[in-house]
């Protein structure tokens, strides 16, 4: 019994090392005073972060990515709210098939989505632009938003809505006064998740990027140049810290939502 428990703990420990290996190495090389990304380490420096500040192309790429991520977050959360509300509150014909179809991009290889959007845009005679990337990102982020928002809507006691209606409110006001405040934490979490996914997405962006690169497309281009690698490590570190902070904020809102509705905290994120 005791020995078996130990084996288990050893396994979990080794697994965590495997899981965290890249995430730990990223900041290590970001602060390493060497232009080659390899061991042994040379010394501490912050110069790779300084390099980032003066890189014009990088700034353009960051700007593009931020614009795409914000737009994607807004639209996919909007689509997510509609779909999650419809699927948790109403019974309608072919509900399971419709939901399955909308959730499909979650399991579809991204290359398929990238390729098919590329074909449509070319065949329709449109130009590739940041908007084509936004459309692709909304498509893949919406299922994640629905997954988060569905649990928020499902935790909502339907009699709350009926109570509001019974007390004389209209359906519209009920939605804004009761439903939205109670699912707000879910909405915030959905916005942040969609933002984070979009910011990091490469495959679709690579297929659909015209002349303007996004941040991951820019990184991809730089990976070929060994001299650029240390500053990419610094960039990766910043992105990692940013992602984790956003996730912590999202999780905070999710927990607050749970506390508010008085439901026991059982599950984790996603």
């Amino acid at each position: 019994m005791l020995r078996k428990g130990h084996i288990f703990k050893w396994y979990i420990g080794i697994f965590l090392v495997f899981l965290y290996a890249p995430a730990i190495l990223l900041p290590v090389f970001a602060f390493n005073d060497s232009s080659i990304v390899s061991f042994p380490l040379k010394g501490f420096t912050t110069k790779w972060f300084a390099v980032l500040q003066t890189n014009e192309t990088l700034h353009v790429a960051v700007g593009n990515s931020l614009m795409i991520a914000v737009t994607t977050a807004l639209f996919s959360t909007l689509f997510g709210v509609l779909a999650a509300r419809a699927s948790t509150r109403f019974v309608f014909p072919a509900r399971r098939s419709i939901m399955g179809f909308i959730m499909l991009p979650m399991v579809l290889p991204e290359i398929i989505i990238g390729v098919s959007l590329l074909v449509v845009i070319i065949q329709m005679g449109f130009e590739l632009s940041l908007w084509s990337i936004i459309l692709g990102h909304i498509l893949i982020c919406t299922p994640f938003c629905i997954a988060i928002l569905s649990s928020a809507f499902m935790n909502l006691d339907q009699s709350l809505e009926e109570a509001s209606f019974d007390l004389g409110q209209t359906r519209w006001n009920t939605f804004w006064l009761v439903i939205i405040p109670l699912v707000m934490p879910g909405i915030v979490a959905s916005l942040l998740i969609a933002f984070t996914i979009s910011l990091d997405e490469f495959i679709i962006a690579f297929f659909l990027a015209g002349t303007e690169p996004t941040l991951p497309v820019y990184i991809w281009g730089q990976l070929r140049f060994p001299a650029k690698l240390p500053s990419l490590m610094a960039l990766g570190t910043i992105l990692l810290v940013l992602s984790i902070s956003l996730l912590l904020v999202a999780d905070y809102f999710r927990r607050r939502g749970i506390r508010k509705t008085g439901i026991e905290n059982t599950g984790g994120f996603l």
């Binding site: 490469f202 490590m233 990766g236 992105l239 984790i244 984790g268």
Partner: peptide, 21 residues
Amino acid sequence: AMWIFLITIPFWTSYLMRIFL
């Protein structure tokens, strides 16, 4: 919940960087 969070953190390292590392 904390453990699940712990498991998902590395996933939020930039996709390209992760592979490169």
